[in-house]
Write a protein that binds this DNA or RNA. Structure first.
Lengths: 201, 201
DNA sequence: GATATTATTGAATACTGATTCAGTTATCAT
DNA sequence: ATGATAACTGAATCAGTATTCAATAATATC
């Protein structure tokens, strides 16, 4: 028998993060990833079913971590909780810029071809954000019929688009992360409040 | 001599809009575009230098139109003007959903490989939006040192990310465009005001 | 040390799809 | 009508790259 040497699986994921960041998923060559990871090209296929599977694993790991961190937030005021959630998301990507690049460029592929199992963390994050949104809306409309949920989904999407864009800006400008973060949160909070007000009768 | 039959160039662009919307730029096959356009595959290369050039032409045309429409806006209040600019952008994409899909998926490629000439319309639109932003900031900080421009650029990016996301939502939900549009503008305006206030001393 | 078993490798394979170009067709000028 | 020229076509070419797999290396067990 022979043992597996170290955790090649993780080394491959780390190498892939760099290569994807530099070349983007499509142009990234499996051979480049294997070289960066210091393993033979064929070894990739011992740990992953293919190039797409590497991306899947990368995002799956990211969202699983984030979902747990979000679940640990104990802020009871929904507005503050949402603020913390967005902050967590931002920070995790601001710290790992290679991954952030891949997130911005290729996350949509993850959503396209990952199975439900792999998306669990992602779905949990979306759900937790959504709950905060619904609570905020409810607290402003206590006595009226609840606003259509489609409306809060729309607001959530718009907000999240802003967060995404703030990360994009972070990568291309020289601004300090803290400055970008705070501006993003300021605008996000103002946006939510305005959206909530619009839902009122 | 022989004349060119009709305006194949435009037929190719229209066909490409559909094919790109369905398959995305990468997976879209030149052969599929030529078939959809009802021309031979080789003819594509009489009108464009390659697949990438089709995308370039598509976006270039879009931004050139939009830049002109924006320039025609005569709203003097910068906040209202920005509102109108965003509205124009939204409407143009909401009306042509095939193109909107391609915009959302592949616009970054345009920015990557188009030359300055082709980007003129795009740059003009960004500039006009930026000017509105700066005026808004100036009108709130009349007596103080002007806020760093990096700050307004950041706000502009975040705002634009929200607009983008609203379009994404429009394509996947069943919400009427008018509803999405108005929510997007509500949140955008609230975001700008909050960002401007944050810049004050 | 010998054997069995599993891990690893990277050159060869297989496939895809953009681009080319030799051949064909249409239009114009005379 | 006929030659000249330009437009058009799509099968063949060619390049790039994900994946496979026969060969090799490392470890474990006896």
């Amino acid at each position: 028998m022979r043992k597996k040497e170290g955790d090649k699986s993780n080394e491959i994921l780390n190498a892939a993060t760099q290569v994807f960041a530099r070349d983007g998923f499509d142009k990234a060559q499996v051979a480049a990833i294997s070289t960066a990871a210091g393993v033979g090209t064929g070894s990739i296929y011992l740990y992953f079913t293919g190039k797409a599977d590497i991306l899947r694993a990368l995002f799956s790991r990211f969202w699983d971590h984030l979902a747990k961190e979000m679940a640990n937030l104990e802020t009871s005021d929904p507005l503050l909780r949402l603020n913390d959630q967005l902050g967590l998301f931002f920070d995790r990507l601001a710290v790992n810029r290679d991954f952030a690049r891949t997130y911005l460029r290729d996350h949509h592929r993850f959503l396209e071809f990952a199975d439900l199992e792999s998306k669990q963390g992602y779905l949990s994050c979306v759900e937790q954000g959504r709950n905060a949104f619904l609570e905020i809306a409810a607290s402003h409309n206590a006595h009226e019929t609840p606003p259509g949920n489609e409306s809060t989904d729309l607001s959530q999407s718009i907000l999240f688009g802003g967060v995404r864009a703030s990360l994009e800006h972070l990568l291309t400008s020289e601004l300090p992360a803290a400055r970008v973060r705070s501006r993003m949160l300021t605008m996000a909070m103002a946006g939510i409040l305005a959206a909530t007000r619009e839902n009122e009768p």
